[in-house]
Write a protein that binds this DNA or RNA. Structure first.
Lengths: 199, 199
DNA sequence: CATGTTCTTGACGTCGTGTCAAATACTTCA
DNA sequence: TGAAGTATTTGACACGACGTCAAGAACATG
C-alpha cells in the first residue's frame, strides 16, 4: 500500500470553494488539481469523476450547513428563531469571496451541477435529502413554538411553505442579487406564517 | 445576398425543445443541428454562440409563457385567478415530453444555462426581466382584487411573496418531482395571502 | 531485502465549442 | 440574359475538458 500524497478533506474543501466561486460547470478538474497541488489523474483515482467529487464536497458542506441552521433555530422566541433562520440562509447565498458579478450561489449550486446529465439522479437525491432535513428542522421548531403558544396552525404545511420561500429566495438572489429585498420577503413570510403578532 | 436555407424560428423552437428536454448543458449544437437539418457552422453564423442561441430561444418562450399567464390571471374571482396562475406554473414545470427521469424544468432552465460562465450577465438579466414582468402581472391582479374587496394588504409585497413561492416550487419540483405536494403548497400560499376566506 | 499493492504520472481518445477560409448560391444591376 | 457581389454554407482546424489506461514510483509487509 502506497499512502496518498494529499489530504482527502483538504481537496474536498478546495474543490468546494472552486465550485462555489466559479460554478460546477465553470470549474475544471485541472483547476482543482492545480489549486490542490495534485495531479489530475490522482483526483480521478481518488474520487472517480468530477461529479462524484462534487457530490462528496457538497455533502461535506451540507453537514456543516445543517449544523449552523440547527444552531440558528435553537434560541429565542419563535419569531427570533425564524428570523435567524432566514438571515443565515440569505447570508449563505453570498458567503465567501465571490468574484466579479458572481451569480453562483451555494443555495443553488446543486442545480448547476445536475444540469445536463451524468449524476442527475444522485445529485437530486442528495439535494432532496438536504431539503428534507432542513424542513424537518423548521417543522420541529414550529411544533415547539406551538406548544409554547407562539404559533397555531399546521406546522408541517408552514415548514414546507417556509422552505419553499427559502428556495425561491435563492433563485431571486441569482436573478437580482438584491439582498435587502430578500430580507423584506423573508420578514413578510414570517408575518404571514406567524400571523403578524408582535411584528 | 444568399438567403438562409433554414427558418430562423423553426430552429429556435427545435433548440428550445432540446434545451428543455436535455438541459442546456446536456444539449450540444451538434444535436440541434442534426435535429434541425442544419450544419453546425450555420448555427454559429446565424446565432453567434450556443448561449446566444439559447437566449433567443428562451426569450421566444418567455413571450408565450407570459401571454399564457396573463390569460390565466384574467378570469374569475381573485382566488380562482391565483389558483389558475399556480396551476399553470406547476403544469409548465413538466409540460412537453421529458425523457426518463428528466429533472430539467423550464422553470429553472435559465439557471442551468447561466451556471459556469459565458453569458451569465445577459442570461441573468433576461431571467430577471421575466420574473419582473410576472411579478407585475400578479401585483396588478391583486390590486384589482383589492378594489373589489377580495384582498386587503400590500399588493406589492404579496406579489413578491407569490413569485418567490413560485420559484421555490420550481426548485422543489426539481428535487422531488412530487406534483401533488406542490399544489398543496400553492393552495396554502393562497390561503396565507388571501386570509383563508372561502377556502 | 524482496514482494505486492496502491498511488502517481503522462499520454491518449473522445466530445464539444468556436473560428476560419474556401466554395456555393442567390440577388441585383447592367 | 449574364456578370458581380454578398451572405451563407461547408469542412477542416484549434483548443479545452472529461475520462481511461498502462507504466513507473513509493510504501507496507513478510
Amino acid at each position: 500500500m502506497r499512502p496518498r500524497e494529499f489530504d482527502h478533506d483538504d481537496v474536498l474543501r478546495i474543490a468546494f470553494d472552486q465550485f462555489w466561486r466559479k460554478g460546477v460547470r465553470g470549474t475544471s478538474l485541472s483547476d482543482i488539481a492545480r489549486d490542490a497541488g495534485v495531479q489530475r489523474g490522482s483526483l480521478y483515482n481518488a474520487f472517480g469523476s468530477k461529479e462524484a467529487l462534487f457530490l462528496q464536497a457538497y455533502e461535506r458542506y451540507a453537514g456543516d450547513y445543517l449544523l449552523a441552521l440547527q444552531k440558528a433555530l435553537g434560541t429565542g422566541s419563535l419569531r427570533k428563531r425564524l428570523t435567524a433562520f432566514f438571515d443565515l440562509t440569505i447570508t449563505n447565498f453570498r458567503s465567501g469571496t465571490p468574484p466579479r458579478g458572481c451569480p453562483t450561489t451555494r443555495g443553488l449550486m446543486e442545480l448547476g451541477a445536475a444540469e445536463g446529465e451524468g449524476l442527475d439522479e444522485e445529485a437530486r437525491q442528495v439535494f432532496a435529502g438536504l431539503i428534507s432535513r432542513i424542513t424537518a428542522l423548521v417543522q420541529d421548531t414550529l411544533s415547539a413554538g406551538a406548544e409554547r403558544g407562539e404559533f397555531n396552525g399546521n406546522a408541517g404545511a408552514a415548514a414546507l411553505h417556509i422552505i419553499t420561500v427559502t428556495r425561491g429566495l435563492a433563485v431571486l438572489e441569482r436573478a437580482f442579487g438584491d439582498e435587502p429585498q430578500l430580507r423584506k420577503i423573508a420578514a413578510h413570510t414570517i408575518d404571514l406564517v406567524l400571523g403578524r403578532k408582535g411584528g
